[in-house]
């Protein structure tokens, strides 16, 4: 379970998070939405302990990530898979080395097992035959899929997706959405998807949290948000209504 209590964070005097309160139960699929720069990714990085809050607490599985020691933070992180906005594949490693890095660092040395897991995870994201390819030789969509396979390799209980469809064309975005939807159903993990793409939200999320001016402005079901008459909610959704 993830509990965020009264979370504040500012960068160079710019208040990004201004008192976030949020609880995410095990097994939930939650989308965090909001305008660019509203603090969605910052919130996600607090949950995984990559950023430390100015004030407040982020508690994951009973560990307060704001105050925990490095070894406790790492223990929590071993249960988390994180898909970065720009994929963040290690460009000096092959696809196989990328996918298996987490396992190798956790002491797995059996090369056959590592190769088998790589093939399994790549198949799960719809890829095959690219184990020896370098990330630079992959398309944006393929890089996202490999990054997804990498984050799944350690079989995490939590999956965090940071802007999974940003920078991808509509067709590839749909494929990534379908993939996340499929994985969420298959793996029964707790999923947090940070996005400003309402198509992703409507397709995948069971719950949506709308951040506005550093606070939780809406927290509920996606269909309730889309039916909302609140002017701020409507302003955010307008573009997607027009497109629909």
């Amino acid at each position: 379970m993830i509990e965020i209590r009264n979370l504040y964070k500012s960068f160079d005097g710019n208040d990004v998070l201004r008192g976030i309160d949020l609880t995410i139960a095990d097994g939930e699929t939650v989308a965090i939405i909001g305008q660019s720069g509203c603090g969605k990714s910052v919130l996600l990085k607090h949950i995984i302990g990559l950023l430390r809050p100015d004030r407040g607490a982020v508690v994951v599985d009973g560990i307060n990530m704001a105050e925990a020691k490095e070894k406790d933070i790492y223990r929590v992180r071993r249960n988390i898979g994180f898909l970065f906005q720009g994929s963040a594949l290690f460009d000096s490693m092959t696809v196989l080395e990328n996918v298996t890095l987490g396992l190798r660092e956790n002491g797995e040395r059996d090369k056959e097992k590592l190769a088998r897991i790589t093939l399994e995870k790549l198949a799960l994201v719809g890829l095959r035959g690219i184990e020896k390819v370098m990330p630079a030789d992959l398309s944006g969509g393929m890089r996202k899929r490999v990054a997804l396979a990498r984050s799944l390799a350690t079989e995490p209980r939590y999956m965090f997706y940071d802007e999974p469809t940003t920078g991808l064309d509509p067709v590839t975005s749909d494929q990534i959405d379908a993939l996340i939807e499929d994985l969420t159903a298959k793996l029964h993990v707790t999923s947090i998807i940070v996005t400003h793409d309402m198509f992703t939200v409507e397709r995948i999320a069971k719950r949506v949290v709308f951040l506005h001016q550093g606070k939780v402005y809406f927290d509920g079901r996606p269909e309730d948000l889309t039916r909302s008459n609140d002017p701020i909610n409507r302003q955010f959704l307008e573009r997607y209504r027009l497109l629909a």
Partner: peptide, 11 residues
């Protein structure tokens, strides 16, 4: 390119 963050996220 967030590769350092990726390492951190993988413990």
């Amino acid at each position: 390119t967030e590769q350092i963050d990726a390492l951190e996220s993988m413990a």
